[in-house]
Design a binder for these strands. Sequence first.
DNA 1: GAAACGATTTGATCCAAATCATAATCCGTG
DNA 2: CACGGATTATGATTTGGATCAAATCGTTTC
Lengths: 248, 248
Amino acid sequence: MNMTEPILKERNILNQLKVVCSLCSLRELCLPIGFGPDELQQLDALTGSKRLVKRGEHLYRTGSEFTAIYAIRGGFFKTSVLHDDGREHVTGFHMMGDIMGLDAISTEAHVCDAVALETSEICEIPFDKLSDLSMIMPVLHQNLHKIMSREIAFDHEIMLMLGKMRAEERLAAFLLNLSQRFSARGYSAASFQLRMTREELGSYLGLKLETVSRIFSRFQEEGLIGVQKKLIELKDTDGLKRLLGGLA
Amino acid sequence: MNMTEPILKERNILNQLKVVCSLCSLRELCLPIGFGPDELQQLDALTGSKRLVKRGEHLYRTGSEFTAIYAIRGGFFKTSVLHDDGREHVTGFHMMGDIMGLDAISTEAHVCDAVALETSEICEIPFDKLSDLSMIMPVLHQNLHKIMSREIAFDHEIMLMLGKMRAEERLAAFLLNLSQRFSARGYSAASFQLRMTREELGSYLGLKLETVSRIFSRFQEEGLIGVQKKLIELKDTDGLKRLLGGLA
DNA sequence: GAAACGATTTGATCCAAATCATAATCCGTG
DNA sequence: CACGGATTATGATTTGGATCAAATCGTTTC
């Protein structure tokens, strides 16, 4: 073996990385562990096919062909399914650092709508390219599995919430989770802006919008949170946690 | 390049396949698409580390180290999480052909208990070996993604059920899903034995056991199903589907 | 800047499922 | 096979959240 082969291989990887829209977004997001410093620098240096999705626009729709997964660089999305009778069910809220579209791999068609709740920047990652690439980059391969596994585990938490918690507990759990996610991304854990309506939040939590509104008011009376329209301030995190009691 | 290298590689794969407990179980189950006839025959010929789990025994427990995923060759499992206050929440029912343990990849520790509801035969698949192997077998790699993706999509359906459906709709949806799963495995779609108690079923569906019992009785009065203890007979599948209305 | 529409809050009433209670039945085990 | 605990069925009552209703507040839009 001579030295040219590894170099060629290296170059090939770099080319593919470009195609793969740059993993700079992935670096910031969910795939950071395990790359060496050099690899990280290379990933960072690459610029990829980013795209703006304006508030209210669809990133993808139910039934459209699955070709890519999407890393959110900034902004806020909801995913939802629409029923025959016109009712909407919100299946998730997604922010900077989250990956969307993983549930479509098995059917090769998207199974929900993804809509931007504010103007957002996303990074499109062609899945076949990512898949090929992960065959030669073990770390990427592992991280891909971890991301999917994390989504499964997170969904199980949601199922617990929907199946076992009362309305107050659901709201408390939601606020604490959102706070924690903002905090993990460098934003304030105590104060944040909701991007969704009461109706969308209710749909996600299995509640009616009136119930969401009432419980926000009640939490405010009890000094647990401050509410000004969409601006939420967590005033007594321990109190909220106490509400959850024995549940997770 | 000479001819020895591919042959060595091939042998290496076969050795690893043995370690990987044999993919014969996987063949029957969730990874069947994409292997050539020769590969399939080889997979079938291999016998792997199967294990019996008796009724009531744990396959794994919350917090135990994640080392393997499990393919069910026969039998029936529930997965559940236990809360501080002693309450149990059932997160899933699993039968022949299902893969369990995927939600533990990200944390490297199991996040739920898996208990056999009847004496069952499982195949343990060491995950690091499977992961290595999938690096050199693209089809295995793809199928692994598909399985995980399918689990995510299925969980979204459960979330819909828990968030939007009334008790009757949940039971109807559950019975139809179970029937369809039995049917896909070659068993009768119209008549089957429930392996779980009313309480476990209620826990899974977000209902109390009394509600489950009452609705089974009501369905029977209406001629939708026949119930004799745990033996369920679907008498009017269309009627059950009609109950679901616009949902799913 | 007024009009129009959407989002939120709050009140009154209703209902599905939980809870409480009691049998009846099943099934594992000594 | 008879005992005892677990499971199921069913009735009576309670209640949390849905539904119906109306007023207020915001924010597009023309």
